[in-house]
């Protein structure tokens, strides 16, 4: 099985290049995921660098660009991929080495969304109540694993990574705006009411298309816009 993988080591390479790898057919087993193949290729060349951890799509470490689409290597079956499999780091993010990108800005925008529950009312001794219907509003929002596939697929984020929060951070903003326990909705909307932070989203929907968890940041952003509109009238 053939691979073409983006290589760049800042210590030795003046420019990135694509390197061909071959995985022997004897090593390819049914049910193998792309990450399994990458781990075997790393045995051929231990300098091949990528992040990975949980191996089943919950830690969000191994996001990369696979045959032109962002995804998680650990949950993409090899057999579904057209060969040669072309692997690149996330587009629009600075490359540290090979498939490893610098996600500092991504995390910075996440923090900008102030992704924590704010509730300054006196704490009850037990849980705060929330109806199952209200809890259902968080489904599709809280499951984000911060892999970065969405923001790294968003042309608006590529252009304005410093000012547009990007789909992942906006999904977090929506998660807390929707949470009936959170008391900072007004402040959250106020902070987002900005030509860039929220409104650079042009509804391209790449985010929703690539999300490996099947989440819909595009809809979440739409819901924030609706809340904005309601607030203004």
């Amino acid at each position: 099985m053939e691979f073409s993988i983006y290589r760049f080591n800042p210590e030795t390479d003046s420019a990135p290049y694509m390197q061909d790898f071959t995985l022997g057919d004897d090593l390819v087993e049914p049910g193998m995921m792309l990450l399994d193949a990458l781990l075997l290729l790393k045995e051929q060349d231990d300098s091949l660098s990528f992040r990975r951890s949980c191996q089943h799509g919950v830690c969000g470490s191994d996001g990369m660009n696979i045959n032109g689409t962002n995804g998680l290597a650990c949950i993409l079956p090899l057999k579904d991929l057209k060969t040669p499999i072309v692997l690149r780091p996330f587009p629009g993010m600075p490359v540290i080495r090979d498939l490893i990108v610098d996600m500092d800005n991504f995390y910075h925008q996440y923090r900008e969304a102030e992704p924590w529950l704010v509730n300054d009312s006196p704490e009850p001794e037990v849980e705060r109540l929330q109806s199952p219907e209200d809890r259902d509003k968080l489904d599709g929002l809280y499951e984000c694993i911060l892999c970065g596939c969405c923001s790294a697929a968003c042309p608006s984020y590529w252009w304005n990574p410093d000012r547009f929060l990007g789909p992942a951070a906006l999904l977090q903003a929506a998660r807390f705006i929707q949470d009936t326990r959170d008391e900072a909705t007004e402040e959250r909307l106020e902070r987002l009411d900005d030509a860039y932070r929220l409104y650079r989203c042009h509804g391209i929907m790449n985010c929703t298309q690539v999300c490996p968890k099947g989440l819909n940041p595009s809809k979440a952003i739409g819901d924030i816009r609706k809340a904005m509109l309601k607030r203004s009238i």
């Binding site: 849980e127 109540l129 809890r135 809280y142 959170d182």
Partner: peptide
């Protein structure tokens, strides 16, 4: 510690009456 988690924002599934 579980009530604390709830106060930290953990999105626990809920029963009909709104409890964890």
């Amino acid at each position: 510690v579980v009530y604390e988690l709830e106060h930290f924002g953990v999105p626990f599934s809920r029963l009909e009456e709104g409890n964890i």
